[in-house]
């Protein structure tokens, strides 16, 4: 039968079918046909997401041996272990798109693949561990909740799993902040200082404003993304301000005010120049984060080699 569709070349027909599926909100599985641009977009986004989970272990790892109590140390270790797990969920989901884990790690090491800019800032005091859990994980949760409905099924499944684990991360951070705000003047100052340093970078985690956001048109049409950067940022701010006020922390933004009409907060200008400076390698910890990962990866090579050798030995027996 001669229909309009069957006269299209094969590639265009496949694309039309794919777009019909994603438009209807159907999930895409690894073996389904997908446009190269969709695959590329996902590999970039998912590997960056995986790298962020793994690199994010560093600023927190900095405080494991100095946690103020055994309870705090156990909690921090469990949280860091979860983040490693999140990295693994995401690497394995990204591998279903045909990239190997080794390639992803190489891309991280060469600088071709990025990780979340926020981890280029140092964790200077114990209050930073509170601020990271509460604000950084808090911002990540808003983003990840939205991604639970992303069109690529393995990514979506990984997000569902991650979101289940994240709420403890945010709560333990907020508990640290609340505890410090009930402490001595010096402890309160420390908490406020952490708030001052982490607030703006947390807002930057959602990426550029919608008006200057590259890569986004396809991502929305193909339902990789469901909410815009600004929508998610607004959601995070609206949730977090009350939590800050409740424990006596001041949000470091003199332009922050409730807007009755939009039922949300108006907020000050984000310093994108700083964002660009840091993401292009001039943040306080860029070098340290990457060189640490490279060093540990190389130092662990013998473990992987030994495991391979042991496998061969078992085969030969």
């Amino acid at each position: 039968m001669e229909t309009a569709q069957s006269t299209l070349p094969k590639e265009e027909m496949l694309l039309a079918k794919f777009e019909e599926k994603t438009a209807a909100g159907e999930a895409i599985e690894p073996r389904d046909w997908m446009p190269e641009a969709y695959r590329k977009h996902l590999i970039r986004q998912m590997s960056q997401h995986a790298h962020s989970e793994v690199i994010g272990m560093q600023p927190e790892g900095n405080w494991v041996t100095r946690a103020p109590s055994l309870r705090a140390r156990q909690i921090l270790l469990a949280k860091i272990q979860d983040e490693g797990g999140h990295g693994l969920y995401l690497y394995s989901a990204a591998e279903t798109l045909g990239i190997t884990r080794d390639e992803m790690i190489q891309q991280l090491h060469s600088g071709k693949a990025k990780y979340s800019n926020i981890f280029n800032y140092p964790s200077l005091t114990w209050a930073d561990i509170g601020a990271i859990g509460w604000l950084v994980d808090g911002a990540a949760i808003v983003n990840q909740v939205s991604l639970q409905r992303t069109s690529y099924a393995p990514y979506s499944r990984a997000m569902v799993r991650i979101c289940k684990e994240e709420s403890f991360h945010q709560r333990q951070g907020y508990e640290i902040m609340a505890t410090m705000m009930k402490g001595t003047a010096e402890q309160r100052e420390m908490a406020q200082d952490a708030m001052n340093r982490w607030w703006w970078p947390s807002l930057m985690m959602f990426g550029p404003h919608d008006t200057d956001s590259p890569h986004s048109a396809d991502a929305f049409r193909w339902k990789i993304k469901r909410h815009t950067n600004d929508e998610l940022r607004q959601k995070f701010i609206d949730k977090t301000v009350q939590q800050a006020e409740l424990i006596g922390l001041t949000v470091p933004d003199k332009d922050l005010r409730w807007n009755e009409a939009k039922q949300g907060y108006d907020y000050g200008k984000i310093d994108w120049e700083e964002f660009n400076r840091v993401i292009n390698g001039h943040g306080p910890c860029n070098k340290q984060r990457l060189s640490h990962h490279i060093r540990v990866h190389n130092e662990g090579a013998w473990v992987r080699e030994a495991a391979e050798a042991y496998k061969q030995k078992q085969k030969n027996n």
Partner: peptide, 11 residues
């Protein structure tokens, strides 16, 4: 559940 990497069954 997803996948993992390992060199043998036990790992």
């Amino acid at each position: 559940q997803g996948s993992i990497h390992a060199s043998d069954k036990k790992m």
